[in-house]
Design a protein around this nucleic acid. Structure first.
Ligand SMILES: [Mn+2]
Ligand SMILES: [Mn+2]
Ligand SMILES: [Zn+2]
Ligand SMILES: [Zn+2]
Lengths: 158, 158
DNA sequence: TACTAATTGAAAATGATTTTCAATTTCTTT
DNA sequence: AAAGAAATTGAAAATCATTTTCAATTAGTA
């Protein structure tokens, strides 16, 4: 498991003069296995008391490094905590966008229309990057609203 | 100036049992005149030493209230500060999406392809809200990258 | 004008993230 | 395999955005 990934990560790190370390390996491995939207705390506590205890500061630093190098995506659902997930290539089958509940923070991945979305994004991206001389690296499409659970809760209250 | 806006705001506030106050009026007026992407601090200092000094806490509270009521949009470009702008109707000519520079935080509004974008969003929204029983209230489309200025700076460094 | 509920704002509290710095680890070179 | 240079780690302290508290003030209503 993870051999190819490990090589990729190590290569990426070498390119920017960084080293592959135990904590970095463990954190990336954890993110690979849990394809979720994790906070720093989520990761810190999940790895606590495992074979190798990782400091909170190191979790922060590792995640930031991986974002800078395009391994991870960082995003914010409005609750003041950053969330991280593996960055999937725009054209991979794992690439997806988000539905976010503004009441409870639930995040739903979807890729039902991903081909159409990507097609339009590509076009917009091309025109805008030329027009504004802007190098586009990434995109976000996100719908915000109220999940079925929160809607139900709200009805009961009234 | 702003009569219609003021009435709309007052009406909105009444509906949720809130009052129209000097600070709220001033903050909304400021946001109307500066169609930008302002932080709490931006607004607090812009209004400091004006006719009516507004407390930082009140700025926070007013902005949050307006977001809850759909008057303002809140978003995050990854620098840890929330930003606010007037919420334009999905179909208004002022509705737009964003290009964000991840180096300097520059935000460019664009609506070059807004009709196509909206059309696709509507379709996706309809299907997803049915599939997941999710009430969609808002959407975000954002491109992240490096602006021409930051690209130039980076070249010079190398 | 008088009343009541909502609002304000200064100060303190909170909570996420960053900084500091001495000890440890990685990777390259012998 | 051992040494050395440079990068990394992590505990503690610092920072900084945002929230809470609470007594004084203000807006809307009767
Ligand atoms: Mn996701
Ligand atoms: Mn904008
Ligand atoms: Zn929810
Ligand atoms: Zn820039």
């Amino acid at each position: 498991m993870g051999c190819k990934k490990h090589l990729g990560w190590r290569g990426m790190l070498k390119k920017c003069g960084c080293k592959m370390t135990k904590p970095r390996e463990i954190i990336l491995e954890h993110l690979s296995k849990n394809c979720k939207h994790l906070t720093v705390e989520d990761i810190y506590f999940a790895l606590k008391n495992k074979s190798h205890d990782i400091g909170l500061t190191t979790v922060y630093r590792t995640l930031e490094l991986m974002v800078q190098n395009g391994i991870l995506n960082k995003f914010d659902i409005g609750d003041g905590k950053s969330r991280y997930e593996l960055a999937f290539e725009t054209n991979s089958k794992d690439h997806h966008h988000h539905l976010v509940c503004c009441k409870c923070g639930l995040i739903i991945n979807y890729n039902d229309f991903i081909d159409e979305e990507i097609q339009l994004l590509k076009k917009v991206e091309k025109e805008l990057s030329e027009k504004h001389n802007f190098k586009i690296l990434n995109h976000i499409i996100q719908f915000q609203g109220v999940c079925s659970n929160c809607a139900k809760k709200n009805e009961e209250t009234n």
